[in-house]
Every structure is written in C-alpha cells, then in structure tokens.
Design a protein around this nucleic acid. Structure first.
Lengths: 252, 252
DNA sequence: CGAATAGTGTCTCTCAGACATTATATG
DNA sequence: CATATAATGTCTGAGAGACACTATTCG
C-alpha cells in the first residue's frame, strides 16, 4: 500500500475506515421558551417515562440524525414537540461531561427556541405524553419552575441529568442578550400587531427584573420608531388597561 | 421481558444497547491565539499533510476521547500542540453541518485558547510538524492571516474544511467580549508586571480597531485601579517609549 | 369618582469619544 | 533640540435610571 502522502484524495477515501474508534452519542436538546396569556415566561419540559431518572423532568431532545445538521435536528425536535416550524432558534452551548448520562457517553448540543406567545399546542406524541409548560421565574440564586395545571413546583432534584445546569445557562444567555439584541420581539404573539406593554412584559421576563415604564418606552422609541423599523398603527389595544394602548407593527 | 416502565434502573441498564444507531464522530478543535513580540495577534494553524485538503491550513484538533470531557479534550489538544497547561479556555461554538468533512459525519466543538504573549514554543510532534503562527488582522469583510517566516498570506481558499467560518466566529466572539470582560488580560506576557501600553495593544488587536490612549487609560483606572484589582508598581518599563511607563500588577 | 395603564417631561449620573496639553525620558 | 510615548484634563453627547406628572378609558 502506498504511503499516505502520495495517495490521491480518491485513493485516500477508499481506504479510510471511519469505524476504527469508539464514539460518543450526540443529542440535540431544545429549550422551548414561550409566553402564556398571563405574560409569564414558560419552558417546555417532559416527564421521563423511562430509566434513568424515571419520573424526573427533562429538556426535550434526541439523537442527531446522520443526514441532518445540528440546527436541522433542533428544528425537527421542535416540530415533533410542538408542530411548529419557522421559529427562532439559536445554539446555546454543548454539554459534554463524561458522566452526565449513566448509560453511555452522551454529548448534548443545546438549542434555544423562542416561540411566539399563544402559539404552542402540545403534540400528543409518545415521547411527549407528559410534556408540560412550566412558568420560569428568575431569582438571585437561579430560577424556579412551577406549573399551575400540574400543581407543582420543581427544585433542582426534580430535573433529570444535568438539565438544571443547562437551564441556568439558557437563562444567563437570555438575560445577557435581551439587553443588546432584539430577541424579545421573537416572543410577541403577533409581530405585526403588538403593544409596548406586551413587549415590556417579555423584556422583564427575560431580563429577570422590572423595567421603568417611561424609560422602556423612551428606548423603544429611539430604537424602533426613530429608525423606521416599527410603525404605529391606527388600531388600538383594549386588552391590558382601561386606557387603550397603541398597536405597533414590525416592518423589517 | 418486562415492559420498560416496570423495570428497575439496574435492569434497564443491563438490557440497554448503546450501539444500535450510527453515530457521528466528535472532534474538539482549538483556536490558539497569542501575541508576538511586535504586539500582534497570532493564531496557530497546521498545514495538513494528508487528504482531504492536503496542503491547506487547518485549526488543530482531534477526536474527543471517551473518558475526557470536551474541556479536557481541548486542554489536551492545547498541551499536545504547545506543551502548555493552565491556559484560559472557552467553548466557542459547535459546528455540525452534514457535509463539512467529506470522509464522514464530523461534529466539531470549537474552543478558544488565549495564551500569554511569548509563551508559545511549538511542539515538534508528528501532527504539528507544520504548525505555524499567523498574524491576524481584522478587516471590515473578515480577516487576513499572514506569516512572515513562511512568507505567505492566506485567503479563505487556503483554509481546510469550514475553518474560515470557525475563525470568523472566533473573531466575532473576541470583538464582542473584549468590551465587557477581562479576556484581554489573558494575553499579557506577565499579569504581575505589565504596562498599560501592552494591554492597549492587546485590546486593539481583539477589538479590531484603534483605541484613544487617554480614554483607554481612564477606563483602565476606573475598572482596575479604583476597584483595587490592579496595583501600580514602583518599577518602570523602558521597552516601549522614551519616557518609561509604570508597571502594574494584577492582584488575586 | 377611583383604578389602571398610556404616555410625556425632566433631572442626574455615568460613560464613551474627541481632542488639547503637559511630562519625561532618549539620542 | 526633536521625538515618542506617558499621563492628565476638559468638553460633548448618548444613554440609563429615578421619578413626577398628565391623559384616557372603564365601571
């Protein structure tokens, strides 16, 4: 056989054996965030029906397929859980500690999905039988997760694998990014018809703290109206207050 | 056989077969940045001695081992290339397009390493036979890589795989992060004895633009001196100017 | 009328950027 | 002396935060 250096690329490919080494498994996990009707941040979790961590809550995910990219895998998982496509997706971080799954070596690429308010309709798949939305509240220490319908509040021990660490990482990312990017817009129920009130509630959920109304409106004006990216509509919104608020429309 | 739901965890583990599905390969790639004596940002690249991309330049990397975490894998690669340990490491992004390697499906977790100036001593390993440091300059479009000793300048076509995209991502990260974090300190030759001049050159390399000396010094004072994180030394530095500059020392 | 949010105006403080000026060493 | 960087001072404008105030609708 020839030495590696003198082979052509074709010859090289012929003799190459990808199966020589043991490989870790790779999964894509997806943190699906949305807003509920009460303007609270929600996170989709699934109660595990199998070992390990039977009965604990986990971030949905699955093995990455050989013919899909990571982002496509995340989009597929999102579709399987919610039926939705065309949703904002962003790679979060890759978790690869050796013992994070007792069964085998698993490396998980975590993605963030921001689903517009009131758009989630949980799929009744086999995996998703016990999917539920939890209200996320950010605290100094970390976060709390609670579900009104399930009538429960989760602590770190109720989460499977290293998923509480993943959620912490996601919330950090959201907190940081909401300040200098437009991700808050992705959670609006309707980008073509929203009130500043709605947007502020989203901002506050992501930032993990209250914002001053006057200042929020001022910076909204500066950032979106003065630049022509958003325009005020004639129609008014009667949902949130005695005094009706203006609707705005994102142009882009 | 029992149904999954009624098995104990031990029983589950016994019947679990991790080898059922085809898996992608996972590599850890490491972008090793440092400063040279001329206060220029450098990036370590390796000229490939094998197909595919024979002769092209690539970011060093290798398969993640089954008993090491991703971060440990990055640290190992760094050690193999440079002999260094205890260096600042940060996960950058995970690249997983299906066709990014013609041989097989490869998912690469990219890490950033910031090596203090004048500390690099290239290892003469088999892989690293053709390792070389390239001076990085950031431009509006992206970047240029040039090597004085190799007497060459690389264009995107001279880079293997999707490595020009990875480098672009790394430079974006550095540009963004140098503004609000202390990563510039990681590139100082000696954290216990440095001049503001040195630090400004590092800042400028990472930010990709010149900084105003007066403003840079003012914010340095505010951020490091006034908080007690850095102290001024008696000793002076005669390297960079006719007028000697003060040395500073990072505490903690 | 009170209640609740919509929406505006104003003051302060901090910080970034631009730029002028003086200081101190070398050769 | 010229020169190069060290180091300080000053002015400006943008933006964040705190807070007082008026407007508009419902019930």
């Amino acid at each position: 056989m020839q030495s590696k250096e003198t082979m052509t690329e074709e010859e090289f490919l012929k003799q190459y054996k990808p199966e020589k080494y043991e490989k870790p498994s790779v999964t894509v996990d997806i943190l699906i965030f949305t807003m509920n009707r009460e303007q609270q941040l929600q996170l989709l979790l699934i109660q595990r029906g199998k070992h390990p961590f039977l009965g604990k809550w986990a971030i949905p995910g699955g093995f990455v397929q050989m013919k899909e990219s990571l982002e496509e895998g995340a989009a597929r998982e999102l579709r399987e859980e919610t039926g939705l496509t065309g949703i904002y997706l962003e790679q979060l971080y890759t978790f690869g500690a050796v013992e994070r799954d007792v069964r085998m070596r698993v490396i998980s690429v975590a993605y963030l999905a921001l689903v517009p308010a009131n758009r989630i309709n949980l799929q009744a798949g086999d995996d998703a039988a016990d999917a539920s939305l939890f209200t996320v509240e950010q605290t100094e220490q970390g976060f709390t997760l609670s579900s009104k319908e399930k009538n429960c509040t989760l602590t770190e021990e109720d989460l499977a694998f290293d998923h509480s660490e993943i959620i912490r990482t996601a919330l950090e990312r959201l907190r940081g990014k909401v300040r200098y990017s437009d991700i808050a817009l992705e959670l609006l129920a309707d980008k073509e018809k929203f009130s500043i009130y709605e947007l502020q509630r989203i901002y506050e959920s992501l930032a993990g703290k209250k914002a001053d109304t006057a200042n929020f409106r001022r910076s909204f004006k500066k950032k979106f109206i003065d630049t022509g990216r958003v325009e005020k509509l004639e129609e008014k919104c009667f949902t949130y207050s005695k005094k009706p608020s203006s609707y705005y429309k994102l142009l882009k």
